[in-house]
Nucleic acid binder design. Structure first.
Lengths: 223, 223
DNA sequence: ATTTATTTCTTTGTATACAATAAGTCAATA
DNA sequence: TATTGACTTATTGTATACAAAGAAATAAAT
């Protein structure tokens, strides 16, 4: 794997915790590279806002509760718009991928009755696939580009989130409503459903921000 | 100036034309630096989508008509939301900056009756200040971050756009409506006015995409 | 004369080297 | 014991070096 994706994944999966300094030499050894390509990967992550400059070098960005709120507001704006546009612009191929992704999501949720880390990751992954299919159906590459950057931050938290059966069932239901709306070309219904859906996710994350499982990811206002 | 801003400005002002290869050695000499910091600046611009990778190295991104349409759709979504949020969250200080920016915009338009390049740049600059003040008043740092990236692309084109007196007058009127809506805390009015305003700008740019003045910036589907 | 093959040359990608600066350590003084 | 100050160490930021991969140019062949 290249340096960029290695570091990004490590941040998302919590291997590199918020606030942690990213030492170039260490990363270079871990990846059997020199410092040069490491520095370039870091510059990209900096441009995306996942890492922040320190006095010298960079550290993993520390997202506050306020950040999470703002990001979910932004994400709901972008993705609900995407859902609306998908209902207008989706092709038949899009519909097939949407259907497939949703069936997979359904299957993964019901096949993994015990909620261990691997299950959670599978659920998060198939959920992402459905959302990505929607954004892709909207037929706006720039929208896609920006959503993919916005979505990363919630990922950092969701990877450690313990969903309840009820939440997953509810999420699945809404997915089906969104799918139907896109299939039947009802942009307004798709948009509203997606908006509700993401705000539901936002509420879940915010309610559990103090949970033991993710508390290590969340350090309020470290200076 | 640092390498990042130097290259960015050069792209916006058309010194580096779309499709043009960015040779590291050349840039390094221009800025009296070694290749290392140049490469890092380029990586950042790549993450923002202003330059694209070639088989080897990078080139200035070539935006198509389709890109412009998509970007204006995205921008109108984001900025109209920002205007709405500004009408809710603006402080008294925000209001002062908003007022100042708008008065300056008015002044610059009327003081520069002959529309030479310097005047256009002054107009674009004061217009940006007003828009930035709105986004800032929305009190969402992540929204601000993404808008600032989205806005850059239209900048590439607007720097070379010859506005008519009518268009400027109209633009000024809408600015005043938006300002009033934000002042009076009318989010819906602010949102709609901003949406119209940006779609007006979009139409202006699209209508004139084939003009001689900007044709060198616009090369359809170069592969 | 045009196309293909081979060689040369330029430019990138990665590694290493060196200098500058922040951070860490230890000792001395209050 | 706490705090300040000088010294040492570690890590960054920039420059340079070298090897590999395209691009350009020249030569050969049909």
């Amino acid at each position: 794997m290249d340096a960029y994706n290695y570091i990004k994944e490590a941040i998302i999966h919590g291997k590199f915790e918020p606030g942690m300094r990213l030492a170039e030499e260490t990363l270079a050894k871990e990846l059997n590279l020199s410092r040069t390509p490491i520095r370039e990967a870091i510059k990209q992550l900096e441009a995306e806002g996942l890492v922040v400059p320190l006095k010298r070098g960079v550290g993993v960005r520390n997202f506050t509760k306020e950040d999470i709120k703002e990001i979910y507001d932004l994400r709901s704006l972008l993705e609900s718009y995407a859902a609306g546009q998908a209902a207008i612009n989706r092709t038949e191929e899009d519909l097939i991928e949407l259907q497939t992704a949703n069936e997979l999501y359904d299957k993964v949720i019901h096949d993994n009755s015990l909620r261990d880390l691997t299950s959670i990751q599978a659920i998060v992954h198939t959920n992402s696939r459905f959302h990505e299919a929607i954004v892709s159906s909207a037929k706006n590459k720039h929208l896609y580009f920006h959503i993919s950057k916005v979505v990363v931050v919630p990922m950092v938290f969701r990877s450690f989130y313990w969903y309840t059966d009820f939440q997953l069932q509810q999420s699945l239901e809404v997915h089906k409503i969104i799918f139907e709306a896109i299939k039947n070309k009802e942009p307004e219904r798709a948009r509203i459903a997606m908006h509700e859906h993401i705000f539901q996710g936002r509420d879940n994350v915010l309610k559990h921000l103090d949970d033991i499982k993710i508390s290590h990811l969340f350090k309020e206002e470290a200076k």
